[in-house]
Structure formats: C-alpha cells, structure tokens
Design a protein around this nucleic acid. Structure first.
Lengths: 147, 147
DNA sequence: CCTGCTGTAACCACCATTGTTACAATCAGG
DNA sequence: CCTGATTGTAACAATGGTGGTTACAGCAGG
C-alpha cells in the first residue's frame, strides 16, 4: 500500500509558506487548500500536525501561518515524521503471531527485522538529506511556465 | 500507512519451502497456514502471486509446492515485487490535482518526484541485496531454542 | 462588537487488507 | 477408474486508514 499523500501535501503547504513574501496576502487554510486542491479542513488538520512538530507557527484568527525556521533548516524527514505517515520503525508490517512450534515461525520476525529496518533507514536517509529549500529552489527554477 | 504484511508472509512461506527436505511431508497450504497462523486461502492466494512471478512451482491436488530456484538466487526485492505491495515507482502517493494557476501547485509534483524516487530506490536496493538464503541461514543460526 | 479565521468533532464514502465459507477442478494413489 | 485430499477462485464480511464535508465553538484584530 502507498504512503499517504499527507506527506506530499505537507511539503506543498510548507513550500507555499517558504515562498510567501512579507507584502503578500496572508496564507489562510482556504488559500492553501486552493493551491493543493482540497478542503480547508484537511489543511488545518495538517497544520495542526506541523505545529505540534514545531515546524510552523499558526496565529489564531486572522494572524496567518509562518515557518519557524529557514527552509534550508527543514529536512523532508522531519516533515515525514511530523505527519506520521508511519510510526518510527514501522514502515513494514509483519504478521504478528507466527506459530512458535515451528522453527521458521519462531524466528521469522527477528530474521526479517534487521533487513527491514535497514531498508526503511535507507529510505529515510534520502529524505533526511533533502531540505525544504531544495524543493522551493527547484520549484522556482522550473519557472512561471506551465509544465 | 504500512506496507502490507503480505510481504513478510511471503518471505515466511518461501523460507518454509527453502528449508523443506525431500523426506518431509508435503507442505500444503494448510500446513503453511499453521506456521504463519492464518487461513489456508490466504496462503493459496499468495502462492498464486509467487507462482505468477515464477518463484515457486505449485503442483495441483496433492503434489506439493517447491521453489524454482536456489534460495541464494532469490532476492527479497523479487518477493516484494511479486506480492505487489506497491506498484513500481509508486511507494509514495502524491496529491494528484494541485492548482496549476499557482507556482507551487504547478511544479510540486515534478519537484518532489526525483527525491521520492531516490528514496524508494534506496529502500529497494537494500531488499535487492538480501537473499532468501540469508534469511534461512539466519533462522537456522537462531537455532531450535525459543527466542 | 463583528468579522473572518482557526481548531476540532463528527460523520461519510471509499478502498485495500485480511479472514472466511463455499465449491469446482485437479491429480496421485490405490 | 474412483476416491480423497488439495488447489484455484469467487464471493462476502469485518476492519481500519484516508480524504472530504459540514458544523460550530473559540479567538483576535479592526
């Protein structure tokens, strides 16, 4: 099964925040929802998670939303963790009650664990090595033309 | 969301097949289900996928099931692909209709694509580098004792 | 005080997953 | 050639996460 699009939506939203300029109109959940093409409540739920992770500051009422850090100091791994696409170390699910009376059943979990953990870590290291700034730079580089 | 346990069950089943000896009783779907602790139909469905991928030979009726290759020639990536936990290149799902009228909406997909692809590939390379033989060796090394 | 926004609960439809029953098709061995 | 065990598969249910939607209370700036 696929990893939830919450992650890509989160990066989208954070990119909007990273690119907002002082003079611009405030980025409301409705405006962000318009860019993502979803419902404002979905955005607000997401912002709640990003806020809890300390990545954004949301000022209630008509105060706007802002990054708490420079985009180059935000790794995609932090975003990935913030939106809880998967709990730490649980990307793969392993059948939980193999038969202990069987040699394979007794050890399959521990035999798989190391490899699955390494696979998951490999994925996360790529995310850890990419920053929000790289994403926004890429977006700007692609310019105003429609892709 | 987590990657389906079909994958870990598949490795479990293949380990059973890899460790079966000529003199042993035949490994029926019911016997395998007993070791995995699930329903025989779940095992048969899985064997269907592994068969389609050419990893096992299933002889109908009371014929038994066998690996088509030596365990050291089966990588976990092949198993992962065989059970279709995710379609090729689709581990991450990306929201599909961002607003093209917005700079970020217009380019977020392509800006994310490279990184997500690299992350996914990193995970798959770890699986590609692990063989079924390594898993069974590990199981045997852990010995008859209960973990 | 008003207005517009956020925070959150509640509910929905949808979909993949896993388990289960049922049964036809198949073959090995007697 | 029969029988009995086993596979292949369809059909269905229960579960759980996801994403969308409505509704509304709470908050703050003008």
């Amino acid at each position: 099964m696929q990893i939830s699009s919450r992650f890509s939506v989160a990066v989208h939203v954070l990119s909007l925040l990273a690119l907002q300029q002082p003079g611009d109109e405030l980025l409301t959940s409705e405006r962000m929802a318009g860019s993502v093409n979803t419902n404002p409540v979905v955005i607000r739920r997401l912002l709640g998670q990003l806020k809890k992770a300390g990545l954004v500051e949301v000022r209630p009422a008509s105060g706007g939303t802002f990054l708490t850090r420079l985009p180059q100091a935000v790794s995609l791994l932090e975003v990935y963790r913030a939106v809880e696409v998967v709990e730490e170390g649980q990307l793969f699910s392993v059948h939980d009650k193999p038969n202990p009376a069987c040699l394979v059943g007794r050890h399959i979990q521990s035999a798989l664990d190391t490899t699955l953990q390494r696979a998951q870590t490999a994925l996360e290291q790529v995310l850890a090595g990419t920053t929000l700034a790289q994403v926004t730079t890429d977006i700007l580089a692609r310019g105003p033309e429609t892709s």
